[in-house]
């Protein structure tokens, strides 16, 4: 163990270096968007007893700052309110709410933060921290970004292992009832975010969706 304290000057130097390297503080933000609730969806599909089922989370906030030529200022932030889950079966929904699965009571939300977005040969990829049930995992989030009749559309599909997040732990861990792999499908039709610092619009509540936010 080194017992010598580093000099204050060095600390300052390292601090300044750290700050300037931190893109979210200094880089100009890329244009920001929020999803148009009625046209966007966050769905997933898994298997139960050999059968594929799909579910959606109807209530989530998302804020996407992205421009291919402003990558340092690009980031994606999503908060999902888990109790808006609908898997087309009340029994399954209430099981998924329980402590062995998502544990809504203790962990009402899941979050996704992609602070870095890079361009790979296949297109843009976010390096994201996904937090479900209090467990955070770094995932790579490849997506497509298209312009569809004047609106930007983000599409992505990632496959998660539910056990990375302790979802379906304990006796459910083996795959005899539910498969481990869950495909998550993201389809966001985007509108420009309302002017700076406004809270992200809430998807799934059309009334709260921003009405034709002004372009900047």
């Amino acid at each position: 163990m080194n017992t010598r304290h580093p000099s204050p000057a060095l600390l300052l130097f390292v601090g300044v270096l750290g700050l300037s390297a931190c893109p979210t503080l200094y880089a100009a933000d890329a244009p920001a968007y929020v999803p148009v609730a009625a046209q966007s969806s966050l769905s997933f599909s898994g298997t139960q007893q050999g059968e594929r089922f799909t579910g959606v989370f109807r209530d989530f906030d998302a804020r996407i700052a992205y421009a291919p030529d402003q990558l340092p200022g690009s980031h994606i932030d999503v908060t999902i309110r888990l109790k808006s889950l609908d898997s087309k079966s009340q029994d399954r929904d209430s099981a998924l709410a329980g402590a062995d699965w998502f544990d809504f009571a203790k962990f009402p939300t899941a979050t996704f933060h992609a602070a870095t977005i890079r361009i790979s040969s296949a297109g843009p990829v976010g390096d994201a921290d996904l937090t479900i049930k209090g467990k955070t995992k770094r995932i790579s989030f490849p997506f497509t970004w298209k312009n569809d009749s004047g609106k930007n559309v983000l599409d992505a599909r990632v496959t998660l292992d539910r056990l990375d997040f302790g979802v379906g732990a304990g006796e459910w861990a083996d795959e005899s009832v539910a498969g481990r792999k869950v495909d998550v499908v993201v389809h966001l039709v985007l509108a420009s975010a309302p002017a700076a610092a406004a809270p992200a619009a809430t998807a799934g509540k059309p009334a709260a969706a921003p009405a034709a936010a002004p372009k900047h």
Binding site: G50, F53, S87, R92
Partner: peptide, 20 residues
């Protein structure tokens, strides 16, 4: 109607008669 999967002895999956 409950939206549950239906499998015969873990071998064959049978279709739902109606939607949930």
């Amino acid at each position: 109607a409950a939206g549950f999967p239906l499998q015969w002895f873990g071998q064959v999956n049978l279709p739902a008669l109606v939607d949930a």
